[in-house]
Design a binder for these strands. Sequence first.
DNA 1: TAGCTTTTTTAGACAAGTCTAAATATTTTT
DNA 2: AAAAATATTTAGACTTGTCTAAAAAAGCTA
Lengths: 224, 224
Amino acid sequence: MHSFAEENYLKTILKLHLCGVQVITTNELAEAMHTKASSVTDMLKKLAAKKLLKYEPYKGCLLTNSGKTVATNTLRKHRLWETFLVNTLSFSWDEVHEVAEQLEHIQSDKLIQQLDVFLGFPTHDPHGDPIPQLDGKIAASPFFTLDKAKPDKQLVVCGVLNHSPDFLKYLTQYGIQIGSHLKMIQINAFDSSIALVLDQKQPLNLSKEVVKNLLVKYNTNQYE
Amino acid sequence: MHSFAEENYLKTILKLHLCGVQVITTNELAEAMHTKASSVTDMLKKLAAKKLLKYEPYKGCLLTNSGKTVATNTLRKHRLWETFLVNTLSFSWDEVHEVAEQLEHIQSDKLIQQLDVFLGFPTHDPHGDPIPQLDGKIAASPFFTLDKAKPDKQLVVCGVLNHSPDFLKYLTQYGIQIGSHLKMIQINAFDSSIALVLDQKQPLNLSKEVVKNLLVKYNTNQYE
DNA sequence: TAGCTTTTTTAGACAAGTCTAAATATTTTT
DNA sequence: AAAAATATTTAGACTTGTCTAAAAAAGCTA
Ligand SMILES: [Mn+2]
Ligand SMILES: [Mn+2]
Ligand SMILES: [Mn+2]
Ligand SMILES: [Mn+2]
């Protein structure tokens, strides 16, 4: 139906939209796609001709409903495959992205449907990102970054904003994973680093770069 | 590393080799690939330039060791994925081929390694074809077609030569699957059809077209 | 061996996707 | 408002893989 390249463009546009970018410019998209602006222009024309997005030269682009459907479905496949790789095939969360980039383009409704069943209808992928449902709905994230948390309250790690293997390995090394419990002690004014306690044990200091990429929530049901 | 097209050509050449075709001609390959002879010539030149096969104009082609490695690995991936689809995701054996044609091109050694572990190191795919092992070894088939069987001996269905969904659905409809037990009664001289008994119950008549595509073996351990 | 048929290769075209370099638009500065 | 800087698009080229039509080679036939 659609080529890998088309699906990749549409998915990237959707992800920029989900990150709050309203109008997507050619250069932004070129950077996100690791390609050149001229290539982006060519592709935007093609996608506009297929009515997958609206494109006004020099004005940027916006997904149409059918473009949104393709993009959401590709994102759903990506995140279901990442979940499969971690839950079923013992991959770590820093190894799955590259493989899921390939698997997300496999065309088979039955395959994805059965994968969803097999995995038990997961709602979030190994990075804490919501998995778009079959009807296209994507749950809004109720999480916030660690630097916004109030001190001395129990927190649970729920996701990451940066998905680079380096960052994910760094977290793993310090024992931080999805579901980890922690308590923010204080923000150090000097370098904006954060002092915290992990799993009621280790005190830990995290730089502002790390803290701004860690999604958490308050632990409401502490004895669950 | 290699494109989908290259992998498909190499895999098809290997499969022709495994079917006993010695020298593979341009037209044979074109028919097997559902493409034109001119396209085949172009690709053979490219694959020869990459030392994946030897190609002499007008003389046909032969895989080199490195070409054989790529082809075998692609076939291994195809058959492991088919096994996954049937065993884990509840596909039927007539639905898997098209999806496996896509999945066989995913590039990740760890993925295939872990899939193999997860599936329990299967030796045969859902059609009874041997799964090439990691070292490239492909088990020779000890099976024979039903028309070669001696009458009145217990047989076990072990594979199929024709993989078309029509044929596979036909077998399923008559209760024939891998592992089915049957006994050949007689060959009808008039139309070369075969009378047999399935699972110690139903008598059944199968046409010569069906019989020549059914692989069986003698049931040595009847009480296993 | 000359002539016909079949097979295979070559020539030239096209589509998808990308790139560099050059030309326009747009935005920001002065 | 004109000049300068930046963003975007266009022009032209290249790669991969495919096709049709024409040319060349190989294989038969008599
Ligand atoms: Mn990912
Ligand atoms: Mn993810
Ligand atoms: Mn198959
Ligand atoms: Mn098979």
